[in-house]
């Protein structure tokens, strides 16, 4: 401590001198520069010991304690953020699933509607066809009836014409005509008029 005082006191004296402190104030006034008492230097030695102990306690124990708590908190916040992000992602996936399901349901409903519509159209078409067929059949029946009636009428006409012609010829000539020639003549006459 003596040695330390020997080294330091000139430095301090030089400093004080450099600051142009009055030498008198230095000598009698400022207790800070009173090197007649060993306490001025001893406080520095004790101060150095206290400072080193404080530094060691802080750097080894107290500051790592703070650091560990801060790290713990940072880790916890990061973990919570990750969890929140994961939850958001799963919620998004759920939303997407729901959207998909809705779209699918809509498509299915549309398909069902279309199918029902088609079925109804088909049924209507079949029914219409059946009705048409029936009407057609009735039409053909009616036409056949007409044709038959007409044919019978035509055949009756030929008979009437032949008999009339035979009677007329017999009256005029007194001779009954040859039936086969008469029939041919009637046939050609009828054909000439478009009947037969």
């Amino acid at each position: 401590m003596k040695l330390f005082g020997w080294i330091v006191s000139p430095v301090v004296a030089g400093l004080a001198g450099g600051l142009m402190l009055p030498a008198a104030a230095m000598a009698e006034g400022m207790p800070q520069l009173d090197f007649t008492t060993p306490l001025t230097v001893s406080q520095v030695v004790w101060g150095a010991i206290i400072f080193v102990v404080l530094y060691l306690l802080l750097s080894r124990s107290a500051l790592p304690l703070v650091a560990s708590v801060l790290e713990e908190r940072a880790a916890r916040i990061a973990k919570d953020l990750n969890e929140a992000n994961a939850a958001k992602a799963s919620a998004d996936a759920g939303m997407a699933d729901a959207d998909q399901a809705i779209a699918k349901a809509r498509a299915e409903a549309q398909a069902a509607i279309n199918a029902a519509l088609n079925e109804a159209k088909q049924a209507a078409a079949v029914q219409a066809e059946a009705v048409n067929a029936r009407l057609e059949a009735q039409l053909q029946d009616s036409e056949a009836q007409i044709a038959r009636a007409r044919a019978s009428a035509m055949s009756a006409l030929r008979q009437v014409a032949t008999e009339t012609a035979a009677t007329v010829v017999t009256r005029l000539t007194g001779v009954a005509p040859d039936p086969s020639r008469l029939d041919a003549a009637v046939g050609s006459a009828l054909a000439a008029r478009g009947i037969g």
């Binding site: 001893s42 406080q43 004790w46 101060g47 206290i50 404080l54 802080l58 107290a62 304690l65």
Partner: peptide, 30 residues
Amino acid sequence: VNFTQSNLMMVVAGLLVLALLWAGMKPRAM
């Protein structure tokens, strides 16, 4: 050992710093 009142205050200051950190961080609260 020429331990002065100046050194006593240094010890008090150091203890206060340590107390602030040790006591303050004891709950390790989030």
